[in-house]
C-alpha cells in the first residue's frame, strides 16, 4: 500500500467537509513498467486542487478532466493509458507501461 494513503483520504474528507465536489482516481491495474503501483491515488476537487498521483505526471491532465465530469454527477469510469516505448518517456510512463485508472466521485 502506498505510504501517502492517509494523506489522500484525509484530503478527500477535508475537501468534502468544505462542501466541495470531490473525485478520486485509483490505479487498479498496471502492465509492464509503471511509475506508480496499483492502489496509487489522486484526489481532485471542483476547483482543480489535486493531491497524490497516478503516474509520473503526464496522464494526470486527462484523469483530472474525467474527474471533473464524474464529480458533476457523471458515472464512474475506468480509463486505460498505454503508450509505445518511443512515446513512453515523453508522457511519463517510463518503459512503455500501461495503467488502468478508476475514477469515481466521493459523495
Amino acid at each position: 500500500m502506498p505510504q501517502d494513503t492517509d494523506q489522500i483520504l484525509d484530503t478527500a474528507a477535508a475537501w468534502r467537509a468544505e462542501g466541495k465536489r470531490v473525485a478520486l482516481a485509483t490505479v487498479v491495474a498496471t502492465w509492464g513498467s509503471s511509475p506508480r503501483q496499483v492502489g496509487s491515488q489522486l484526489v481532485v476537487d471542483a476547483d482543480g486542487r489535486m493531491e497524490g498521483s497516478v503516474s509520473g505526471g503526464c496522464i494526470e491532465g486527462a484523469v483530472v478532466r474525467e474527474a471533473m465530469e464524474v464529480m458533476q454527477g457523471g458515472p464512474p469510469r475506468t480509463l486505460e493509458f498505454g503508450v509505445s516505448n518511443e512515446r513512453a518517456w515523453e508522457v511519463g510512463l517510463a518503459c512503455g507501461g500501461t495503467v488502468k485508472v478508476f475514477v469515481e466521485a466521493v459523495a
Binding site: T5, D6, L9, D10, A12, A13, R16, L24, E104, A105, V106, A107
Partner: peptide
C-alpha cells in the same frame, strides 16, 4: 466512494 465509506475507512486507519 461514499462519504460514509470514507469516514469508516479513516476510522479503521486511525
Amino acid at each position: 466512494m461514499k462519504s460514509e465509506t470514507l469516514a469508516a475507512l479513516r476510522e479503521a486507519r486511525a
